[in-house]
Design a protein around this nucleic acid. Structure first.
Lengths: 297, 297
DNA sequence: AAGTTGTTTTTTATAAGTAATATGCAACCC
DNA sequence: GGGTTGCATATTACTTATAAAAAACAACTT
């Protein structure tokens, strides 16, 4: 059976929109709401009838009207608004990064399925998807080999990352002056400077900026394989730093400085300088990752 | 229900070994045979009892002895010796490369499942696995987008391939003189020369040599992401050239020449020359692929 | 006729079930 | 005691089933 997490998420989202005064249910067509929330009309209708059933809106001859106010308890709990797939991912990453599973050990689909409370199929699909991250490997007619989130992994990851980043940075610098990407880069620069001022209490926000910068640079000359690889990096960093908070403020502060130098180099168009600042940032990011891996082991 | 293709393949393999006089069933332990065929002992035992049931061997007090000779009809048909997974792959690739599915169209799991005669799950697992090849993309809560086996795809693929190959070639040249990889390279050179002499009737064998050469070069400094990427290339070429035979002899003859120049450059250790010959080969391979894609469209 | 809602059909995300295969353990043998 | 076979258990590679969600179609409304 399929869970109704899509519906529940859409329902919560709709409540938010109503509360923010962003939509007037009576005046909005199903299709307009559908486009807004990003689900099918079938789901929108289910949301609307649930709103009605709860008295939040009231159906009448000419469309629904506002009913009772929305309560905090009307929202579905977060847990019910995410798909099983998402749960499996989260639980697996936690299992891998926090558990003490040794590199070289075998992963058992059935066992994970029981542990995560899902059918084996879900675990298997996740593992297939996850296998492209280079951390696990399928053994024919048997389980999966866990290769380990090791220093070696980090080094191989960064070797590729550096190649891709240098390539994209140089291409970025060659963009015509009127490319809209330059504007975006300028905005990002401002955002970095802003964050630096408030670093004390907003240092968590750095990872989002980091992602934006590197993805922006890749957009200079899109290549699907580089994009895919960046997905790997994003996921690894997302989960890894979630469990490695040591020196986060200082690390991020230093990284912002590196980013700013890198951005300036891009604006300057000086290839040599771009390579220098890019490499400096890559090297320090690698050092951070490797160090935290050593700490864990 | 699980198909018994593993058993059937193992059975066929065992028949081969017996016919070739490579194993004497009476004198070989289950475990030895297991290691030889690469399956579990459970499967080996099933093979042995089937041999017995058919009278090919005869169980007696002290182990089985030879019974009747093996007939051609004892072998299971090839179709039954490969997993569903393999079938899905083959059928999908044929569907994609031969069919007239337009780039941008949606792939339907259920429809493919019916067409291929498997459960939807199998198709879905295949598509997840296949998605890393950059030809399809999942749409949340909906089907898969077929991006198309286009010229653009080929160019993006080769951009990465060139980066990786140049990187590995340079590292290969830096290997110490006593590395066993040099011996392997020398052997490959001989194989190339040999093939060139018999090119008229053995030109199909080139693709295997091609694969061996590029994988050998990557082994100088292994990186799992590069290895994975090479899997992409291998699969693409394997299926693509299966349906593009035009000028195959001439193309392969030219490619052997390029390989030989490349190999010599590696032996010379001259970085500049390595880059030149490597690029020449990459460029011509890319041209071949792009041209055949244009022909198809 | 374009946009709306009501209804039916198709497809997806998940679970449950099953024979084949792999794995692990016990008993045997020399 | 290392290697053998016999047997029991666990895991995988599938198939079938089902409610949720998407898509397609039809009827209505301006």
């Amino acid at each position: 059976m399929k869970p109704d997490s899509v519906f529940k998420k859409a329902f919560n989202r709709t409540l938010q929109l109503i509360e923010a005064g962003d939509v007037d249910i009576g005046a909005t067509s199903e299709n307009a709401l559908r486009a807004r929330i990003g689900v099918s009309r079938t789901t929108v209708r289910k949301v609307l009838s649930e709103l009605d059933a709860r008295g939040i809106t009231q159906a009448s001859g000419n469309g629904p009207r506002a009913g009772r106010p929305i309560l905090k308890s009307d929202y579905f709990p977060d847990l019910e608004t995410t798909s099983k797939r998402q749960h499996v991912e989260e639980q697996f990453m936690e299992w891998m990064l926090r558990g003490d599973t040794q590199p070289g050990s075998l992963i058992n689909e059935l066992q994970l399925a029981r542990q995560f409370g899902v059918a084996t199929n879900g675990v298997r699909e996740f593992l297939i998807r996850f296998s492209r991250f280079g951390l696990i490997e399928k053994k024919q007619n048997s389980g999966w080999l866990f290769k380990g989130f090791t220093e070696e992994f980090a080094l191989e990851l960064f070797e590729i990352r550096v190649m891709f980043e240098l390539r994209s940075a140089v291409l970025f610098a060659e963009l015509p002056d009127d490319s809209p990407l330059w504007t975006e880069l300028a905005e990002l620069k401002t955002a970095h400077q802003q964050l630096l001022l408030e670093i004390g209490r907003r240092f968590h926000d750095f990872s989002r900026l980091d992602n934006r910068l590197h993805r922006l640079i890749n957009r200079a000359a899109p290549n699907r394989f580089i994009d895919d690889f960046y997905d790997v990096i994003t996921l690894i960093f997302h989960y890894h730093y979630q469990w490695n908070k040591k020196d986060e403020l200082q690390r991020n502060e230093a990284a912002i400085g590196e980013h700013l130098a890198y951005i300036d180099a891009l604006f300057s168009g000086d290839t040599h300088e771009i390579e220098r600042t890019c490499l400096r940032h890559m090297t320090s990011a690698r050092t951070t990752l490797v160090r935290s891996l050593q700490g864990a082991a």
